[in-house]
Design a protein around this nucleic acid. Structure first.
Lengths: 125, 125
DNA sequence: CTTGCCTCTGACATTGATGTCAGGTTTTAG
DNA sequence: CTAAAACCTGACATCAATGTCAGAGGCAAG
């Protein structure tokens, strides 16, 4: 499949795909004229990459983890395993913080709702 | 308290504090010579701002919400309330996505661990 | 062949929070 | 009084993923 097709299938811009390739997060074969060709499996790969991006991982980190996705049949280096554990930790911490922030927001909303109710009552009176 | 003191207390750079003020997320009184003076309460405020930043809110959005923090006693505009609900939704969606990503990472780690075990057994044999 | 769409490379722009540097004033400590 | 440390403004730099534009070539259909 050509780049435009992959872009549409994965819901990503063509520009981003070229960038991913540049960052070695994605590979393609080239037609004689130089056009990129991708495999079906690349749709999922792009999705995974996007997800990791959304989780705040950098290209550099993602690149370190991708070998584990591509070749889980080979021995995964200790370094990569450690990296994954580490990112998992980071992720958990981040999630926890977001939850706390959401709670804070909830508290804020409750307070404001209460005040609004008070005001309404005062106005009605 | 002066800016350096607040920076240390809140665990933020002096540069950031000046930026927050510029973005109107923080206010200060000025000494005759022009130095900023902050209140104790600003430590918490900076913490809150930082938390919202970490949650992916922009300065612009944070600015919209801060009035609700400062003056919960006044009527909070419908717009601000809606804004909060909206950000809460965004936050929840983000959290969910992160959890799914973490699950994916867990799956990846399990797969790789399994393969490593297999390899170890093969090596031992 | 031509028209239109897709692709190529390469380069520059953007965004947002923050770092950093320069040159100058204020405050504090000795 | 003096030196060090903290502060001021203003400006430019940075990072990372993406957008965007320009100029050129590729490919399918009429």
């Amino acid at each position: 499949m050509r780049i435009g097709e992959l872009a549409k299938a994965a819901g990503v811009s063509v520009r981003s795909l070229r960038y991913y390739e540049e960052q070695r997060l994605l590979t393609s074969t080239r037609s004689p004229s130089g056009q990129r060709h991708f495999r079906e499996a690349d749709i999922d790969r792009v999705g995974f990459v996007q997800r990791l991006y959304a989780a705040g991982l950098s290209s550099r980190t993602i690149k370190e983890l991708l070998p584990c996705v591509d070749a889980p049949s080979e021995a995964t280096s200790d370094a990569a395993m450690e990296r994954m554990e580490q990112e998992r930790e980071r992720l958990s911490a981040h999630i926890e913080e977001l939850v706390r922030t959401r709670d804070a927001l909830d508290g804020l909303m409750a307070t404001n709702r209460a005040h609004r109710k008070t005001l309404r009552r005062a106005t009605a009176a």
